[in-house]
Nucleic acid binder design. Structure first.
Length: 211
DNA sequence: CTCCCGATAT
DNA sequence: ATATCAGGAG
């Protein structure tokens, strides 16, 4: 089967299975989403929501985060892991937003990725969810599934990003990645993927070796 | 490449 | 005990 036809079928199956997808992160504005996404590195969304609920009650604006003692931020986000790096990054990120962007989260990839602690994955999450700007979000799920479904031969996240950009219509970029993420959590899990329950198994050559 | 790092599932 | 969780920086 041609790659495009196979990709089309995969997209359709996932689209049908997962309607109305969105990030599980809880936020009230672009800045909160940025902070929540930085916190979500190597951490579940659920765990992030647990701390941001309280965090955003104590600290609201970029200015609040820029001027708070970093130890306070560390304490508030500790349970998300990597708390020293994340606290420092969130603070420096907030300072940059205050100093360089008039207190507003920039709306383009180039400026976003200049912020400390913000890579392409985080930037694309914010662009997509907060501003409706299309982007391919390559996280651990997207990376894993792109390889299992043979949508990309590459292991480098940036190369995967560009591979997917070529085979997915731009308007679908955000939803497609969310579909893969939902699919990755439910079926195509890192450990013990549920190949027997998989809706795209006929389009997939990957077979779970642990079964 | 290594380091950062707590919570959870298996 | 170990792998993994919507990664990024040095």
């Amino acid at each position: 089967m041609k790659t495009s036809a196979r990709t089309e079928k995969i997209r359709k199956i996932l689209r049908t299975r997962y309607t109305d997808v969105k990030t599980q992160l809880e936020y009230n504005n672009p800045f909160e989403l940025l902070v929540a996404t930085i916190l979500s590195a190597q951490c579940t969304d659920k765990q992030v929501n647990k701390v941001t609920d309280n965090l955003f009650r104590k600290l609201k604006t970029p200015h609040d985060f820029a001027t708070a003692p970093v130890e306070i931020i560390e304490k508030l986000i500790k349970s998300t892991g990597y708390f020293r790096n994340k606290a420092k990054n969130i603070q420096n990120c907030s300072r940059s937003i205050v100093e360089n962007y008039e207190g507003r989260v920039p709306k383009n990839l180039e400026d976003l990725t200049k912020l400390p602690g913000v890579g392409r994955k985080t930037a694309n999450v914010v662009l997509g969810a907060a501003f409706g700007i299309p982007g391919i979000v390559v996280d651990t799920h997207v990376s894993r599934i792109a390889q299992r479904l043979n949508l990309s031969d590459n292991k480098d996240p940036v190369k995967i990003e560009f591979d997917l950009m070529k085979i997915i219509p731009e308007k679908e970029w955000n939803d497609f990645c969310l579909h893969l993420i939902y699919f990755g959590r439910e079926i195509c899990r890192a450990r013990k993927p549920l190949c027997n329950d998989c809706p795209v198994t006929k389009l997939c050559d990957y077979k779970d070796k642990t079964m």
